[in-house]
Amino acid sequence: MDVQELIKNQVTSNPVVLYMKGSPKFPQCGFSNMATQILDACHAKYLAVDVLADQNIREGIKVYANWPTIPQLYINGEFVGGSDIMRTMYENGGLQTLLDAAK
């Protein structure tokens, strides 16, 4: 299975997926850390994928979303944004609405 199919499978079979550097307990980058804290503040359950553990996913995810940076958040298979957009949406309540609708 090529990496684009693998990613598509991950984001469509899990309601909420966060591609990050490191893990929620041991984030390896400030932006990834902020993303996990935002999701925790929203009491979201999510699949965390450590892109540092797999170089193919680390590069493949940037192509998949046409987005050059990590972290990347997906809800119901849709690319929502990076840490910048997550923070803005968290502040205006839009993120909580999306997360509540995730199934």
Partner: peptide
């Protein structure tokens, strides 16, 4: 959308961004 706006900026930066 905000995502699309940011993508436009990333496209403008091209490989420099990566």
């Amino acid at each position: 959308s905000m995502v699309q706006q940011h993508q436009l900026v990333y496209q403008a930066l091209g490989d420099r961004m990566r």
